[in-house]
C-alpha cells in the first residue's frame, strides 16, 4: 500500500482542497461518521494491515452490531481471491429484455436500503441505433421490451485502471488480485470523490442508515461485499465476491430470466467467458477513457 495516509490527515487535505460551502457540504457525512463511530471502530486498522486475529475480532464485532441494530443473526466472512482467477463478466444485449430482475436480485442479495430500492445495477433503456449510455433512462416503467428500445444493465465495470481507486484520499478502495475493486466500509470517509470519478455511475453513497427488516437480511455476508453498510460510506458492485470466491455464480446472473449474463475466469481458456470473448464481437463502455473494464457487452449477430 505504500506510505499510509491516516484518515485524520485526509480530513485536513480535504479541508484545504475545497472552498467554503462545498467543504461544509462535503464534510457533513464525515462529521456524521465521526459522531457515529465508536472508539473501537475508529481505532480499527486498515483492513489490509489487520492480523488474522485482529480481523476475526472485527468480524465478530460487526456481527454483534448487526444483531443489535437490525435484530438479525448474520455471519460475516472474509473470502480471499482464488489463485489463478481473474473474474470477467459479459452481457448479451440481444437477449436482455430490461426486466430489472438482476437489479432486484442484487437489492436482496446485497442487503440494500429498502427505502431507496438501491441496487448496484441500473438498467438503462436505450434507443436502438444509439450507444451512448448517458442518453439511457433508468426510470422506465412500462412493459418490456418496448418497441424501438434495447436495454443495457450497467454495474461496476471492475476496471483494470480504476479512476475511482486513484482519487481515494485514504485508500479505502482498491483492486484485489482477482480484479474486483472493493471498498473497506470501515475506512471510507464518505468524501465521494470516487463516486464522481467513476465514468459508469457505478458507485452509491449511503445518505441514510440502510433500512432492512430483520427477516429480509441476507445473513450470508462478507466484510468486503454485502454486509450491511454504515451510513455515510460509498459502496459498489463487488461481483458478489462472497459467492464467486466460493465458485458460485453472482446473484444477478442466476436471477436473469433471459440468460443474458455470462460470468467466469478470464484465465481459464475453457471458460464460458473466454468463449464469448473469442467468438462474439464484444465491446466495453467508454473505451476511449482507457479504464479497461472487465465487463463486456455484445450483440448476437
Amino acid at each position: 500500500m505504500g506510505s499510509r495516509v491516516t484518515r485524520r490527515r485526509a480530513l485536513r487535505v480535504l479541508g484545504a482542497s475545497l472552498g467554503g460551502s462545498a467543504f461544509a457540504y462535503a464534510v457533513a457525512p464525515v462529521a456524521a461518521f465521526v459522531q457515529a463511530t465508536n472508539k473501537e471502530e475508529f481505532l480499527q486498522q486498515h483492513y489490509r494491515e489487520l492480523t488474522e486475529a485482529g480481523l476475526a475480532d472485527v468480524l465478530r464485532r460487526l456481527e454483534a452490531e448487526t444483531a443489535r441494530d437490525y435484530g438479525a443473526d448474520v455471519s460475516i466472512r472474509d473470502p480471499r481471491p482464488l489463485p489463478d482467477v481473474q473474474f470477467g463478466y459479459a452481457l448479451n444485449l440481444s437477449v436482455c429484455i430490461g426486466c430489472r430482475k438482476c437489479a432486484e436480485a442484487c437489492h436482496h442479495e446485497n442487503n440494500h436500503d429498502r427505502r431507496t430500492n438501491n441496487s448496484y445495477i441500473r438498467v438503462l433503456e436505450m434507443t436502438q441505433g444509439t450507444m451512448d449510455m448517458e442518453q439511457g433512462r433508468a426510470d422506465y416503467d412500462h412493459a418490456v421490451p418496448a418497441p424501438g428500445k434495447y436495454y443495457m444493465p450497467v454495474q461496476c465495470q471492475q476496471c483494470e485502471n480504476p479512476p475511482c481507486v486513484d482519487v481515494c484520499p485514504v485508500q479505502a478502495t482498491w483492486k484485489e488480485d482477482d480484479g474486483v475493486v472493493v471498498v473497506d466500509y470501515n475506512w471510507c470517509i464518505g468524501c465521494r470523490y470516487c463516486e464522481a470519478a467513476c465514468p459508469y455511475h457505478a458507485r452509491r453513497f449511503n445518505w441514510h442508515k440502510p433500512e432492512i427488516p430483520a427477516d429480509e437480511i441476507n445473513p450470508d455476508q462478507a466484510y468486503l461485499s454485502n454486509r450491511v453498510r454504515p451510513q455515510g460510506v460509498v459502496e459498489k458492485c463487488h461481483f458478489c465476491l462472497h459467492r464467486t470466491r466460493e465458485g458460485r455464480l453472482p446473484a444477478c446472473l442466476e436471477a436473469c430470466p433471459t440468460g443474458a449474463r455470462v460470468f467466469g475466469n478470464l484465465l481459464d481458456p475453457e471458460s464460458e467467458i473466454r468463449w464469448v470473448l473469442a467468438n462474439k464481437r464484444v465491446f466495453v463502455l467508454k473505451e476511449e477513457l482507457g479504464t479497461n473494464p472487465r465487463f463486456f457487452y455484445f450483440f448476437d449477430t
Partner: peptide
C-alpha cells in the same frame, strides 16, 4: 423460455425502478 408452439419470448412488466433521481428527470445526479 420458449413455448415450442409460440417461441417468441414474452413481454413482461419490469421490477420497480430505483427510487433515486439518477438518470431520472433529465439525467442529473442524485
Amino acid at each position: 423460455c420458449h413455448d415450442p408452439h409460440v417461441p417468441a419470448y414474452p413481454r413482461v412488466l419490469p421490477a420497480a425502478p430505483p427510487r433515486d433521481r439518477f438518470f431520472g428527470a433529465g439525467a442529473g445526479h442524485e
